[in-house]
């Protein structure tokens, strides 16, 4: 839906401004990112807020999303499946972190978070970047993406050293990063494929 909307809007703009095919393709791709991003931001703010798990869900989403920029990972086959799948997953993580925080103190949560970051660094060295057909990474860019991913993990450690985050946020971030790292592994690709197929059974989310 977002893809079609972006294409129609790009066609309208291209016709009015006499754009060539390349310019139209650029506008269409840019609009798809903007429109898709806006919808996601709105959904990811409103739903966790209504459920009362906003802080932990956003912590999980940020820890996962910022690392995903350079790292990549498995993808769903449509925007709707991605939106619903990630929303449900991160809301579960947010609720779980909030629940588990009652049983974990700050130091335990911090060590757990560092453990996940260390594990992520090991996986990064082996797998990153994990690109897809829709957006291949050029061989010359691969090292840069890996360094970027390791830099992101270093920033995470620095944040935990500088700011004393509450245990629920540390747990949420750790779990969000774990899910993201899972999508880098072959097993994660299988899981994502199964989830994608499962979501495809929902009438509105068929391709």
């Amino acid at each position: 839906m977002i893809h079609n909307m972006a294409e129609k809007l790009a066609l309208l703009i291209a016709n009015d401004l006499n754009f060539n095919k390349l310019q139209r393709a650029k506008v269409s791709y840019g609009l798809e990112i903007i429109l898709g991003g806006l919808v996601k931001v709105l959904v990811f703010i409103t739903v966790p807020m209504i459920l009362g798990i906003f802080n932990t869900t956003i912590a999980a989403l940020l820890a996962s999303g910022l690392f995903r920029l350079p790292a990549g990972g498995a993808h769903c086959t449509s925007y709707g499946r991605c939106l619903l799948g990630s929303l449900v997953t991160f809301c579960i993580l947010g609720a779980l972190a909030l629940y588990l925080a009652d049983f974990v103190n700050y130091i335990s949560a911090l060590y757990l978070c560092w453990g996940v970051i260390l594990l992520s660094a090991v996986v990064t060295l082996h797998y990153v970047p994990v690109d897809c057909k829709a957006k291949p990474v050029k061989p010359a860019q691969r090292l840069r993406q890996r360094v970027w991913a390791l830099g992101t993990l270093l920033v995470y450690i620095l944040i935990t050293l500088i700011i004393q985050l509450p245990p629920e946020l540390l747990l949420a971030a750790g779990m969000g990063l774990t899910v993201q790292v899972l999508t880098l592994l072959p097993q994660g690709h299988t899981l994502m494929e199964r989830m994608d197929n499962l979501l495809g059974l929902i009438p509105g989310l068929k391709k």
Partner: peptide
Amino acid sequence: PTSWGAWYQP
């Protein structure tokens, strides 16, 4: 970026 922060890549 290799991927946008979401599980779908245009």
